[in-house]
Every structure is written in structure tokens, then in C-alpha cells.
Design a protein around this nucleic acid. Sequence first.
DNA 1: TGTAATACTTAGCTTGGCTAACTTAGACTG
DNA 2: CAGTCTAAGTTAGCCAAGCTAAGTATTACA
Lengths: 142, 142
Amino acid sequence: MKDAELALAEQVSTVLRHLVLLLRRSAAGQPVTSQQYAVLGSLEPGPRRMTELAEEHAVQLPTMSVQINRLEEAGLVARGADPADARVRTVELTGEGRERLLAVRRARIAAIAEELAGLTGDERDTLAAALPVLAKFGRKNR
Amino acid sequence: MKDAELALAEQVSTVLRHLVLLLRRSAAGQPVTSQQYAVLGSLEPGPRRMTELAEEHAVQLPTMSVQINRLEEAGLVARGADPADARVRTVELTGEGRERLLAVRRARIAAIAEELAGLTGDERDTLAAALPVLAKFGRKNR
DNA sequence: TGTAATACTTAGCTTGGCTAACTTAGACTG
DNA sequence: CAGTCTAAGTTAGCCAAGCTAAGTATTACA
């Protein structure tokens, strides 16, 4: 392994720490936690089963079960049944859940856009070019 | 606000979600949690006071107090006193804490370097160019 | 038909956030 | 210099979100 790669890895490590802090700050004061927001997002296209949700969020099934309990109590999602297999539970957005999802998404995107506004046009271009690379980076070894 | 900026903001939002999942996966099974690792990292240059640590990690003082309690119980840090002001407590790494920090850092950097190895040279260049921008992005509005 | 596997849930533990309330020490004011 | 205000930490008590272990119900299969 070359020194240049190690140095790059160190920089990546540092930047990731900063981004985590950014996310933490932007999540404070929202009407749903970032985890809840992510789960609601998974439900946008339509009903999903518990195992799918757990896998998608890299979480054990019991963790997702409890998370869905909280969202259900809050009236944001509803559990259903799969007519083909009585073991599986489906989860879908309620109307209120969908509204909440869209509202939080708007707020999040606005917050990020505001950060972007603080960059120069060149910096935005550089960032835009790197996004596909970062996306690949993040999806590896899943 | 332009459509292009909003579209970029959405992409950033998606990539950040992927990176969070990446971090979560890479943190599993380590001998310290990512929060503990971050705090140990802050102590590397030398003793720090509680308020400094809390501020640096964007956390309330009681949260840091409890975190330091755990690290102290684990033998990784030691509390001390400031001779100039009896109210302030200082925190510093123990020998064991320093060893642990370095070991985890090596493991983390190696893991990131492994991800980097899956990229082409061009992709690495693109990523390297974007890191300063991301760093600026993450540090704004702190 | 009986056993194994699958899909969930619940219970109980840990980490890591928060606020409120307390203690102790320093700073400042009349 | 006495009294009060402010600053620095800690503890207590709450909640979210992760985990494993154990239990239930249903399906698959030998």
C-alpha cells in the first residue's frame, strides 16, 4: 500500500468526522429523528416487510421492530398483513406519515442547499464531480 | 435558489446517508465505539478540560461527563486538576488509552484505504480534489 | 405428521444523547 | 469583606436506538 493512499485515507477519515458532526447538528430540533426519517423514506414507494427494512438500514430485526412500534404509536405508519404468508408483517405510511416525510425532506434539502450556497461555483462543481465517487465508496461491501 | 442547487443538495443528502451506513458498518466490532474513539483522538495532543471536549464534540457537558466516566473506568483516560482554577477538571490519555487509540486508528485507516483501493486512479483524484470542499462544508455554521 | 426453518416480537442490557438540579469555586459589587 | 452572581462539573432521570437471547406463530419439508 502506497503512502499517498494512506494519506488520502487519513483525510477521508477526518472529513467523515466533520460530516458526522454536520449531520448531528442538522438533525437537532427536527420533528423526527434521523433514523425515523430514513425509515419513512424507505416506505415512500409503498408497503415493505420488516426484514427488508432491517436489511436496508443495516440493523437487526428487533431494532426495526421497536422502531416501527414507535412510528406506529406516533401515527406515522401502519402495520398490515401479507395475504400470501401469515408470518410476514407489512408496514406502510399513513397520510400523516407521508406529510411528515415530505416536510422533513424539504427542510433537510433546504439546509444542505444553504450550506452549498456558501461555496463558490468552482467548489460546487468539484463537489458535484466527487458525489458519484463517494456514492460508490459508501455502497461497497454492503 | 436555483433548481441545479436543489438537485445537488438532494444528491448530497443521499450520499451522506450512504456514508453514514458505511461508518456504522465499519464501527461494528471495534474495541471502542466511534464516540469513544473520537474523544480519545481529542486527547492525543495532551490534557484537555471537560468544557473544551464537550464543545469540540458538539455535546452538552453532562454527556461528556458520563462519557469520560466510562473511559476512566475502562482505564483509557485519567482525570486531573488545573492548579490555576480548582473548578476545572482536566482529562488525559493513560498509556493504555494511547495504545488503544493508535491501534484503532490504524485499523480505521486501513479499512478506508481498502475502500480506496477499489477506486480507479481517476476516481481517487476526483475524491482528493473534493475533500477540501467537503471539509469546508462540514465545518460551516459550527 | 412431526421437525426444521422463517418472520416477528418482547425483554433486558448498553451507549449516548438531553434537561434539571446540585455542589463547589471563582469573580464581582456594595 | 460579605454577599451574590457566574462558571465548571457531576449526578439523576428520561428517551432513542442499537444489540443478543428467548419466545410465538406459521410455513416448508422429509
